[in-house]
Amino acid sequence: MSTEPAERIGGWLLAPLAWLLVALLSASLAVLLYVGVLVSPSARAHLAALTTTNLSLWILSLVFAVAMCCYTLWLTAAFFKRRKLVPKHYIIWLLISVLLAVKAFAFAPVSDAMALRQLLFPLLATALLVPYFKRSTRVKRTFVNP
């Protein structure tokens, strides 16, 4: 019984890896912005002046930002270790990204052009990368570690 060694990360897999690294940087910066609000005395005063509903929504956004940052960090580490569960979790991560973009499109007080641009990239990435991760033999040969 012979086993072939796993392929290295390369080829078209560099694009999903780059997307993941940029998303990790973006999620980390979002968490840093929330921490900056918590550290600043004037910003904390503004938070204290919020209604209970708005404060609850702000805290919920903070929780989602931290959770997405942690999940992205974990997925990035698993990607580099070429874990077997990466394709499934990468697809889940892409779908969560689309859901967060839809939430921003529907509820954020930004212009429609900005919200549509923020929605377009996750939709395009999901449309291209989900079939690739599901059907590619390279993906199946790369992510083999338990």
Rank of each mutant, 00 (worst) to 15 (best):
I92P: 04
A125G: 08
L57Y: 01
T51Y: 02
L55W: 11
S136F: 06
A65E: 01
P5S: 02
T137V: 10
C69V: 01
G11F: 00
R44E: 00
L33V: 04
T142I: 10
S97E: 09
Y71T: 02
K140T: 12
F133A: 09
L20V: 07
L25G: 15
L29H: 10
L128W: 02
L14G: 00
A113N: 06
S42L: 12
W12V: 02
S2D: 05
Y90A: 13
V22T: 12
A115P: 09
S97C: 09
L120P: 01
A43Q: 09
A108E: 08
L24D: 04
L25E: 13
L94I: 10
L129G: 02
R82M: 06
A106H: 06
V39F: 02
C69E: 01
H46E: 14
F64N: 07
F79W: 15
R8C: 00
F80P: 08
W58L: 00
Y132F: 14
W58Y: 08
F79L: 08
L95Q: 13
K134F: 12
W19C: 12
L29R: 13
K103D: 15
F143P: 05
L116D: 01
I91Q: 15
K81W: 03
L94K: 06
L21M: 14
S56C: 05
W74P: 04
L120T: 15
F79H: 13
T53L: 04
S56A: 12
K140C: 05
L25P: 09
V139I: 10
I91P: 04
A78M: 15
L85K: 03
L100S: 14
V139F: 08
A18M: 14
L123P: 08
L20D: 07
A115S: 15
I92K: 10
P87S: 11
L94P: 07
A27Q: 04
T126V: 13
R83T: 07
V139R: 12
L123I: 09
A15E: 07
R8Y: 00
S26I: 05
L95C: 09
V102E: 05
F143N: 03
N54P: 01
R44L: 03
L116Y: 07
Y71Q: 02
L47V: 04
K81L: 15
V102F: 13
Y132K: 06
N54H: 12
S56N: 05
L75Q: 11
S61I: 02
P41I: 13
V37F: 00
A125C: 09
L75N: 10
L57S: 04
T142S: 09
A104N: 14
I91T: 11
S40W: 01
L128A: 08
L120A: 15
F143H: 07
V98T: 14
S2E: 01
L100W: 06
L24R: 05
